[in-house]
Amino acid sequence: MEKKELLVVDGLKQYFPIKGGFLGRTVNHVKAVDDISFTIHEGETVSIVGESGCGKSTTGRAILRLEEPTEGKVVFNGEDLTKLPKGEMRKHRKDLQIIFQDPYASINPRQTVSDVLNEAMEIQKVVPKKERRDRIIELLETVGLNAAQADRYPHEFSGGQRQRIGIARALSVNPKLIICDEAVSALDVSIQAQVLNLLDELQDEYNLTYLFISHDLGVVRHISDRVIVMYVGKIVEIGDKHSIFDNPKHPYTKALLSAIPVPDPDRERNHIVLRGDVPSPIDPPSGCRFHTRCPFAQEKCRVDVPELVRHDGMQEGHEAACHFVEEIERGEVKPKELQVTTF
């Protein structure tokens, strides 16, 4: 059965102007997100992974129009959010919620937990006033807190508990899609597992859809159905979890996965080392943006921008933006210098 498309991002661009010069003119742009498209189906978890500056967080914020996208469509439930007037957009916010890395920064320290949740419900008018207290307690219990904690202030909670409050706030308006922007990154492993399990359970219970933005590939492998790999504002590879983790095709995805230290002392420890730093999104490299660090780079990579396509030997829905996927696979294009390290 074909699943319903909940969110369609089409040709999304997010450029931030750089002011400078004598009169503060716009001298250049940070091309944080540069023409990306993907679809999220109802009830699934899609992750965006990548290193700093790849545009993963900007994508999440652009979908919610926390910053107005420069170009492109964000179609949610059949409606293009980028075309909506501000007031209309506010109504749609109840369907799309976001959880941040540091929930403390987005919670007013002078509000109790119950105030925080009450306010969220008030704005979206989802629950009648007299039922709200019951709903608050229900929500707290759903996220693993208890009714007695409703009247406490944020600073009385630990990091993990605050993230639960953030989740409760997102849930309070019955959203369809929750964007988790590095939502578990700041948590310790033992607490992180608690929150990941909670997100899992809530998804089953409320048929939630997650867009999970993270740099932690362990977490991504655990929680995702499908994975999007971004590099300097572009999608380099997209596919279901197993395609990406077990059968990566793009040289960047391969290097990224190979760079993760694995908690197994007996595993083979060969890591592909990428030369240099991630390029700046202000002046991204021409052609394929990865060509400056790619061990397989050819002349063509410097000139032509590769399309995101499905190549031979790739499953349905698995696409990579590389000119030479098949040639590399067949060993016809060899790495010029493939540096490998053990550490």
Partner: peptide, 18 residues
């Protein structure tokens, strides 16, 4: 409780409490 990048886990077993 560690989500592993190298293999699939059905469920994480967290340490409860803080």
């Amino acid at each position: 409780s560690l989500p592993r990048p190298d293999e699939d886990q059905e469920k994480l077993i967290p340490i409860h409490g803080t």
